[in-house]
Design a binder for these strands. Structure first.
Length: 764
DNA sequence: AGCACGCCGACT
DNA sequence: GTCGGCGTGCTC
């Protein structure tokens, strides 16, 4: 034994007897020196520390059946509740459980449930040196619970550090994170990474503002336009927990209405949370809340604030200094105290889907929150998703809708131009634009700005009936049929079966067409057709927030439409085929949602007395199609209800639940062989997953460049979703055994990487 | 996933 | 004897 070791060993023994005064020595440099010092230990004088430890262990074991922390050989540990249950911050599923650590006395005060800690966590058997266990590196974690005893039979390592005494992880947030992890077959650590922002010491240092007393309850305002609107707000104000799916009338009032729902909840003494799809929507509700309640009552949580500011706002919420939150999807986990209302606006917008594992959707997270906290729930949209319709159909939520006369008063006039009109219309051929559309634009420009909605680039062409445009679907599982190139064999995008003899079940047609649209060029030509009028564009590159109420052509891609002062005089929706042609279950719903989002910015048809002053919308799409009819009638709820009925009939989500499993063919097959799926589970596939193109950034869920992946879909009936997620999670955790790399050929022994995605969005 | 332990074969 | 191949299993 070296001098250094002797010294340290002695210090440790003394420290153990004297208590905490010496503990810090062990965390110092000296301890590290000893650990690097070869195979020390077996000295002559006295028993080495680890033997002492073992002796005491065995003595205690005889006395107490359950383990107490022993690592420190009885050294100074917290006197009360000396065991800390820790969630180790690693997203891997087989570490998705708690680990117990001993709490040193000096960390006792700070080591409270909810704090961030650092612990030694490593592999293999640990060296026991100097009475202290080593191995593994320091990793972050959350202290979840303090206990008197551990149910772990081995010796416990000690907490290395309490990162800060701030108790960031409340019991409610932990419960929510666990529910989300279970729902999405993900790990708790992954969800917590989404739920708790990274620490900023400076933000923690700063005191949060003093909380304000509850405001008085607001007037119902424009909620009075809805049949159940005023009652809903009143229920919030009186401390109730109503659950509503709110089909908002077109126009700009929605943000004020959301603000009033928040204010009513605050008035009841509870907190409120609103999740919005993008920064522009957040800014509107932020402004509405400020107008209604003044500054200081709500926090804004968005991704584009810097990390320090973000954490500061988050802390103000966590500390209860601020009771209301508006933000984008990351705010869905905001730790609002005494939560009274969760609200989401426009749940059909795909930015509500989290990009990071396990990719939870804000609507689903808020549903879990509403159930867990027994609070009010409000899902609002100009449009209506099938999920929203299902909440009403199942009786879980009540509809908040306006009567037909209110809808007529608020909505623009909608007219359609179909393929037939296009073909017949000579002027249209020349201008690539139907007369009706041309007239609507010209007339609109006399009264104000005109919105032209054009498709985004990059949609996937899909096969449809050349005659009636109905999407071509597989006769076995009703998945979308895809043709590699025109004339080539058709194959189902879900189950991979070839379809040799397709015919259209709608009209009996047997010819197919791939859908292609040249609307962008049409819009450009439209601009040229009105040379005296300014043309502004809004799209992914530059998104305009607002445009003045003066005549102009405003060309925009879906989702980027600026709000026009006083509303648009007219809108031209040119992306009909592109939207309806997407190989997606949601194609119809999505098209309708985007049309409605644009049309809701147009003046009501009845505005003003003057002829032509009312707003007009022209949609270039076949008028017999269901989403087009729903737009004309302004009936997104009816559309969603019908879609829902159809999905139930065909076994589509959200009536059934689906999971996608992708990876190499062998990995996927092996995974599904070992997974103990629910009896009712139905396997569809496999189908190839699109390879990552060379030079292209790898998309989420796409295979690494050069690898060929396959995807299987697992479908379960209603009620089996939780069982499916649990089975997939278990199988994923057990997936340590590597793929059968036994000797076949060269390298690349299949590392059995498999991706599991609950509610895959691109189902076809 | 890391990463240490350990059980065998070749080497100073 | 001892170094080091990678196969196996654990992480409080």
């Amino acid at each position: 034994m070296s001098h250094v070791e002797k010294a340290i060993s002695a210090t440790a023994v003394v420290g153990a007897e004297l208590g905490s005064a010496r503990l810090s020595v062990r965390f110092g440099k000296n301890a590290r020196v000893s650990s690097e010092d070869g195979q020390g230990g077996g000295g002559a004088e006295g028993a080495p520390p680890e033997q002492l430890a073992l002796i005491r262990e065995s003595v205690r074991k005889a006395e107490v059946p359950r383990a107490k922390p022993r690592t420190w050989r009885g050294a100074a540990l917290a006197k009360e509740l000396p065991v800390a249950r820790v969630l180790v911050d690693k997203g891997v599923l087989h570490l998705d459980r708690y680990f117990d650590y001993a709490v040193p006395e000096e960390l006792d005060a700070d080591a409270q449930p909810g704090v961030r800690v650092r612990v030694r966590f490593g592999a293999g058997r640990h060296r026991v040196r100097d009475g202290r266990r080593e191995g593994g590196g320091l990793i972050d974690g959350f202290l979840v619970e303090r206990l008197a005893e551990s149910d772990y039979s081995g010796p416990l390592a000690a907490l290395a550090q309490v990162v800060s005494p701030e108790r960031v992880l409340s019991e409610e947030l932990l419960g929510l994170a666990r529910a989300v992890a279970d729902r999405y077959a993900g790990s708790l650590a992954d969800v917590l990474q989404l739920a708790v922002p990274p620490r900023s010491a400076r933000a923690e240092q700063r005191p949060s503002p003093e909380p304000l007393p509850p405001p008085s309850a607001p007037e119902a305002g424009s909620w009075a336009r809805y049949e159940q609107g005023a009652a809903f707000v009143a229920a919030l104000a009186s401390g109730g927990a109503p659950r509503a799916v709110w089909n908002a009338l077109p126009g700009p009032e929605w943000s004020d209405e959301l603000a009033r729902a928040v204010a009513a909840t605050l008035a009841s003494g509870r907190g409120a949370l609103v999740v919005l799809p993008d920064g522009r929507a957040v800014a509107r509700v932020d402004a509405a809340l400020t107008a209604l309640l003044g500054e200081g009552r709500h926090a804004v949580l968005t991704a584009d604030a810097g990390p320090e500011k973000r954490y500061r706002e988050w802390l103000a919420v966590r500390r209860g200094a601020v009771r209301a939150v508006v933000g984008t999807r990351a705010a869905m986990f905001a730790p609002v105290q005494d939560l009274g209302l969760v609200a989401i606006w426009d749940d059909g917008d795909d930015s509500h889907s989290e990009l990071h594992a396990p990719q939870p959707h804000a609507r689903e997270v808020l549903l879990l929150r509403a159930a867990q906290d027994k609070c009010a729930f409000l899902l609002g949209s100009w449009s209506c998703t099938v999920e929203a319709a299902q909440l009403v159909e199942s009786g879980w939520a009540r509809p908040v809708v306006a009567g037909r006369e209110q809808v007529r008063a608020a909505a623009p006039l909608v007219r359609t131009v179909g393929d037939g009109d296009l073909a017949r219309d000579e002027a249209a051929r020349a201008a690539r634009l139907p007369t009706l559309a041309w007239q609507a634009v010209r007339e609109g420009l006399r009264h104000g700005p005109v919105l032209v909605q054009v498709p985004r680039r990059g949609y996937v062409p899909r096969m449809a009936c050349a005659n009636c445009r109905a999407p071509a679907r597989c006769r076995h599982c009703a998945g979308p049929l895809e043709g590699q190139e025109p004339g080539a064999a058709l194959r189902c995008g879900w189950c991979g079966r070839d379809e040799a003899a397709w015919h259209c079940p709608e009209c009996g047609g047997f010819r197919l067409r791939a859908q292609v649209v040249g609307a962008r060029r049409t819009a450009e030509e439209l601009g040229r057709a009105f040379p005296a009028v300014p043309v502004r564009t809004s799209g992914r590159e530059h998104v305009l927030d607002t445009v003045p109420g003066t005549p102009a052509l405003v060309v925009s891609t879906p989702g980027a439409e600026p709000v026009a002062e006083g509303g648009y005089a007219a809108a031209l929706l040119l992306d009909g085929w592109a939207m309806l042609g997407r190989p997606d279950l949601r194609a119809g719903e999505d098209a309708l949602r985007r049309w409605i989002a644009a049309a809701a910015l147009v003046r009501p048809q009845g505005v003003g007395g003057a002829k032509g002053a009312g707003g007009t919308v022209v949609v270039v799409a076949e008028p017999t199609l269901r989403p087009v009819q729903a737009l004309v009638r302004w009936d997104p709820v009816g559309h969603a209800v019908r879609e829902l009925a159809e999905r139930a009939e065909l076994g589509f989500p959200p009536v059934s639940r689906m999971a996608a499993v992708s990876g190499s063919a062998e990995a996927v097959a092996e995974f599904l062989r070992t997974a103990e799926l629910p009896r009712e589970a139905e396997l569809l596939g496999p189908v190839p997953v699109a390879d990552t193109a060379v030079g292209r950034p790898r998309r989420v869920g796409a295979p690494p460049a050069g690898e060929h992946w396959e995807r299987m879909l697992v479908r379960v009936p209603p009620g089996s979703g939780a069982a499916l997620a649990a089975a997939l999670k278990t199988a994923q955790a057990a997936r340590m055994a590597r793929g059968s790399g036994s000797g076949s050929g060269g390298g690349g022994a299949g590392d059995a990487v498999v991706r599991v995605r609950i509610d895959p969005p691109d189902i076809g």
